[in-house]
Design a protein around this nucleic acid. Sequence first.
RNA 1: GGCUCGGUGGCGGAACUGGCAGACGCAGAGGACUUAAAAUCCUCCGAGGGCAACCUCUUGUGGGUUCGAUUCCCACCCGAGCUACCA
Length: 814
Amino acid sequence: MADKYSPAEIEAKWQQRWEADGLYHADIDPKRPKHYALTMLPYPSGDLHMGHWYAMTPADAHARYMRMNGFNVMFPMGFDAFGLPAENAAIKRNIHPKEWTYANIKTMRQQMRTMGNMFDWRREAVSSDPEYYRWTQWFFLQLYKKGLAYRKMAAVDWCPKDNTTLAREQVVGEKRVCERCGTPVIKKNLEQWFFRITNYADELLHFEGLDWPEQIRTLQTNWIGRSEGANVTFKTEGGDEFTIFTTRPDTLWGATFMVLAPEHPLVAKVTTQGQKKAVEDYVSEATRRTDIERESMEREKSGMFTGGYAINPVNGERVPIWTADYVLMTYGTGAIMAVPAHDERDFAFARKFDLEVRPVIQAPDAKPLDGKTMTEAAAHYGVMVNSGPLTGTNAEEAVKKTVAYLEKNKLGKGAVGYRIRDWLISRQRYWGAPIPMVYCKTCGVQPVAESELPVVLPDDVEWKPTGESPLKLHPTWKQTTCPNCGEAAERDTDTMDTFMCSSWYFLRYLSPHYDKAPFDPKEYDYWMPVDVYTGGAEHAVMHLLYMRFFWKALRDLGIVEGHEPAMKLRNQGQILAGDHQRMSKSRGNVVDPDELVRQFGADTVRAYLMFGYRWSEGGPWSDENIQGVVRWIFRVWSLFTEGAGGGPRNTAAGQKLCRKAHQTIQSVTRDMEAFEFNTIVSALMELTNVMQEAKDAGAAGGPEWMEAQDILLRLMAPITPHVSEELWARGGKKYSVHLQGWPLADETAAKEDEITLVVQVNGKLRDRITVPADIGENEAKERALASEAVRKQLEGKKPKQVIVVKGKLVNIVV
RNA sequence: GGCUCGGUGGCGGAACUGGCAGACGCAGAGGACUUAAAAUCCUCCGAGGGCAACCUCUUGUGGGUUCGAUUCCCACCCGAGCUACCA
């Protein structure tokens, strides 16, 4: 008698059994090839939501697939527990961040267990544990010693709501808002810690050997923003040298004024007595403007003539020097030559202040440019005109020849500019790893001794943000002694950007409790690098870039080997609410996975998330579509638990089933490799349908039937681990289905012996004929020409050409 | 403005290397079972025309290459993401 499919019962049962047996423990085993499957770890900001399920369960399915293929698979999980999300949630509820975070971790751990994933929980790492952040601090010290961490005063991005500085990468969107809370950021002059990610700008552009999505590589490449050009040294009339960066050295003869950033050190010096007041006013206004909300900033050009002049080194011309805030102190040299005829921004500036526009590049087939009448800059390349010795040089070589000319005459040289800035890692927040540095009145900045780590984050702090670092307000915490001279000194009271914690978490999974180093070298040697990394594309220029930088820095420190931490990257899309909006509590459109698990079981939720969407795309949640998967699992259940049904043995049906089963192995295997889970589930549904047909035809119980059952359960095991295990056990097979090998397709069995040949006339479908699969070209042609429908179409006309595509079609051209 | 990705039935989505467009599902229609409903099962299901065999149209729009284009090329429209005074 068939009993009812009861997911709640069987899922709990198997989860307990797997746990008790340590079925998913990943231990070093030199006899088996390893596979490190990593999925991005969650912030413990509250409940586990649909996005976590969508990211983690297909990743789990793939990890399980690798395991069935003979790999020793490690699939660890942890919590990115420090940082703003947890802290803000805690503030809102007036609970201490530590209490809130650890309570959430406890709940989320339980929720994650209901997914039925093959996480090895013994390897769990929590970044807010002292045994974890001890090593985050240790890494900071290593970077500091290598000169990759430095402190400087700079105009930095500040979030007025979260009361902290942010890295450039964490300021997003048109309105330049805080990545976490959406508040427009402002600029503040502060002394902060930075990591020299710019040292690695060039290397980070290289993705050789990495199987990463094009999209991520493009985003990172654009973010790094490499541009080639030249540095050219100009002299002021007063004799001071200053260097400008340009990507268009070929326009050097068209420079009609110079622009210095308002913060440029030379501004004060070149300013004449007559312009002094006006320039000082402009500079202070420009500096103040960076403090005002960015939103109100207009694109209208502003600037002030300094009264000073520079000498153009290529032609000795006297060029006026201006200062304007459209030139940024943080890019290039903070100074430019302005070529209004060929640069949009310079053009707008020149028109506004009535400065000369002089064309020096001419497009070959266009009317000669006239600086007086031009209405927009001509930014294209072309033939150089009015350019002294280089006049006549054409587009392809103009830039190169100019650089060569500059170098030969010692006027400048080729140079490369990058858009990326150093990574600002200081945060004026409580819930993070304290920066392990000490300030001594006599010895200056001193690193905490490694033996003193971790610098423990105190609990008894007024942790609500005030704009000052909470640790600064603690009565005693910051008081310490100088590691160098032993006199009284003060600790750094900022904490580290949580992206620092997540830049190395995959190394901590190797040995989360190891206390001699950040990781156990034995584990490292076996498991690293990460073979497959899965997660959201929104981390393209944050976590995914930081992580690569961090790894390269560790490599140069001799801590790790190899150039990249994760070889293959796959991104999932986002699950939206049914109304195509992002799920959010404020919109009230959140679908609770716990509720769905109660209603349908984890297997159904897993299978639906894999079936309903192209994984890389995501899409809106649908309560209706999940019904298809509910029915499918139920049909599979019935197929295995109901009696074989009577009827005579039907060999044709059995053969068809056998063929379908082996074809399904082929397609599911192919799609697993490609992370295309939706077509995996539909292929499994098709196989189920053919099994039903075979059963109705009386083939149940036969050898093909038994084989198909075996194949279906193995193929389903990664997708729906619980029901597969249950039906596997009920079939009297050896525990566990998850320890079985992935089925191998028998090519001969999968082969069709008859195929449908498409017959076209002039590329239009006219007939379909059933022929033996191995039909020869000539015979196919003959049979097609013999077709009734074709003869009707031809009306006696002679075919001009007949194209035969083996196994596919015959096209008759008249 | 720049870069990137995408646009296929009422809906989610298939289509491997240029070769039957719409697999697999959802929703819908009709039928079986039932006192009835739910569940389940069977049939139909891109649009238009035709009693029918069948014909015509159809993968954002317009061109092109090809025996043949959802797939390749060009232009344009629309949407999403990233970026934005980066010289």
